[in-house]
Amino acid sequence: MSSLFSASVLLEQVRLGLQQALATRISAGPAAGAAQQTWQLGASACFSVVALPLVAETTWTGALDRLTHSGPPLLVVAERISHQARTHLRARGICYADAAGNAWLRHAAGLLVALRGHQQAISSPATAPTPTAPSTVPPTQLNVAGMRLVFHLLRTPALVACPVREIAKTTRFSPSVVVRTLAYLAGHALWSADPAGWAALRPAVVEHWVGHYAATLRNRLNPQRYRWLTAAPPTWPYPLPAGCVWSGEAAAQRLLGISAEPPSMLTIYSTLPRAQLAHYLQLVPCQRGPVELLNPYFAPLALDPEQCAPPLVVYADLLASPVPRTAALAQQLREAGHW
């Protein structure tokens, strides 16, 4: 896992991995800082958890000496804990868990768990049924939820500095989606929890997101093509009802202030029922029609007079369009700094 991960991301990834492996809920409580939490396993096993990347290094001994306390049993969490460090931690009675799947938990309440990276766990009867080791390998590709989450992060850069739970709450995704998506970004050198670092990475993240947009996200938005009911299309520009926004070529013309001929392909995102919108615009289904309707994945829909989708969406739709001239519009939109 990349060193760009914040402590809160590391803690959440390891917590979710242990929860999956032990088939039991592990709740995280507040503590004194992003690198410290209290984890509750079952009704009586409580641990004082601290994220300590130094455990994987030769300087682990001094770092652990500074963590001696009299509260609940100490549970050290790290990206990866070496075999030597694990041996010394067990000898000192200090519990540990890492993102590679290694874990050793011991509690006076009758809990004993031993996990060795991606192998079967050995546990006492006080734990859940024999578990399997957690899968902490980052996803190989962004799924629909991951694409939508990255879109949120690009639109609201301040989120990158928030803890996992805050990102999940704000974006309405589960913490596991957040952890896996950030793991994917980190694995592709596209993640920083520092706003300045994220700003520097943003152009690369945008291009990566756009490159996966058409195949991963766009085709899940129920895209449907239509033609005009009458032989002659209405006079351009066409009025849109509330709950609809332009994207693609039509939106680019508006955002760039270009007065041009009517777009050869119209892209519209709408929350209205398809039949209602088709009736309003006088459209009929046609596989090669010049009008495309899609469900939005961004909210709220634009309320400005131009009725345009977010510029990043417009940019992605331009690059996904089969119309050759849209590539030049996408470049203009990018150079104008709209996204």
Rank of each mutant, 00 (worst) to 15 (best):
A35C: 06
A260C: 08
V113D: 00
L41C: 04
G146E: 02
P310K: 06
A45Y: 02
A328S: 14
V323N: 14
C286A: 13
Y213M: 03
T61V: 15
L10K: 00
L255A: 02
R218V: 08
T68I: 15
A199N: 09
R66I: 09
P300M: 02
N143D: 14
R172Q: 12
G248S: 10
P296N: 06
L149G: 02
K169H: 15
A97P: 02
C244R: 01
A133K: 08
Y238W: 14
S124M: 13
A328H: 15
P175W: 00
A214L: 14
L240Q: 04
W191K: 00
V284Q: 06
A161K: 05
L153T: 04
P322L: 08
L41Q: 03
L333T: 02
H338K: 15
Y96V: 07
T170K: 10
L153S: 01
S44T: 10
F5R: 00
A51D: 03
S247A: 05
A128I: 09
P262L: 06
H118N: 12
A275Y: 05
A199S: 08
Q36M: 04
Q40R: 11
A242L: 12
Q331M: 15
N295K: 14
P296L: 01
A43W: 15
A85C: 06
H208L: 07
W236T: 13
L221W: 01
G197N: 11
S321A: 15
G42Y: 01
A189Y: 12
R220M: 08
F47P: 00
A35S: 09
A97G: 01
R90W: 03
L159W: 11
A91S: 12
A121T: 04
N102Y: 03
R116L: 13
P285K: 10
R106T: 06
F151C: 06
A200K: 11
F298T: 11
C46H: 07
F151A: 10
W236D: 14
Q276W: 12
Q19D: 08
P305H: 07
N102M: 07
P157H: 04
L319Y: 03
S2R: 12
H188M: 13
L329A: 06
P273N: 04
R80N: 14
A34S: 12
C308N: 02
S44G: 06
H279C: 12
L67K: 03
V179P: 01
A145K: 07
A91L: 13
R227A: 11
V55L: 09
G110T: 11
D194P: 05
A78R: 01
S27G: 09
A251G: 03
A320L: 11
G71D: 13
P73D: 06
G117C: 15
P300Y: 03
V9E: 01
M1P: 02
V205C: 06
